[in-house]
């Protein structure tokens, strides 16, 4: 195999997208994944890579409000879209978003590696303001693996966050 002339390695595109509410324009290698673009080019290191093959869900971000696995997308595919990472809730450790507060209160994290993904997924599912059974919550978070918590406290945190957001009227 001769790879010295590998167009995949050298091809670039200039893209414009919104990330956490800000418009960003960058030139990226076409083969760069969205996850690597967010982590390496924009320093959004909350996007964690657990498998890079679409199973663990740790790299979850919201694309136009819907969760996607950013390891399975190319950065160029996000052109013209709106991307949210956990920093969009709060990047300030002393002033957390109610969902982040709910996770802390319920001890819904141990190592923290799945946490940004779980928080974003929580934001996405509670946005409809509906009351859910624990069973439903389990199904809805089952696309993200957590190796530490055994999930129960994450389920509790989603319920807690849903109550908080309902009572404060804050949009999740």
């Amino acid at each position: 195999m001769t790879t010295t002339e590998n167009p995949a390695a050298t091809d670039t595109r200039t893209i414009t997208l919104r990330v956490n509410g800000r418009e960003i324009t960058r030139t990226v290698s076409t083969r760069t994944t969205l996850a690597d673009f967010l982590r390496d080019d924009l320093d959004l290191v909350s996007v964690h890579l657990g498998c890079e093959h679409g199973v663990c869900g740790c790299c979850t971000v919201l694309l136009d409000g819907q969760s996607v696995r950013s390891c399975l997308m190319l950065a160029v595919q996000a052109r013209g879209h709106e991307v949210e990472t956990v920093e969009s809730l709060s990047a300030d450790q002393t002033n957390l978003h109610p969902i982040q507060e709910a996770f802390a209160e319920e001890h819904a994290l141990q190592c923290g590696f799945c946490t940004p993904a779980m928080v974003l997924r929580c934001k996405e599912i509670i946005a409809d303001g509906r009351t859910r059974t624990d069973e439903e919550v389990r199904r809805e978070i089952s696309g993200i693996l957590c190796r530490c918590t055994g999930y129960q406290n994450i389920v509790n945190a989603v319920q807690n966050a849903s109550r908080r957001c309902a009572s404060t009227g804050q949009e999740a």
Partner: peptide
């Protein structure tokens, strides 16, 4: 008690090696 490790992890600043 809440854990003192949590705030940094909740904002995605765990300080992992890949970061």
């Amino acid at each position: 008690r809440r854990r003192v490790e949590d705030p940094r992890l909740l904002v995605g600043r765990g300080g992992y090696i890949a970061d």
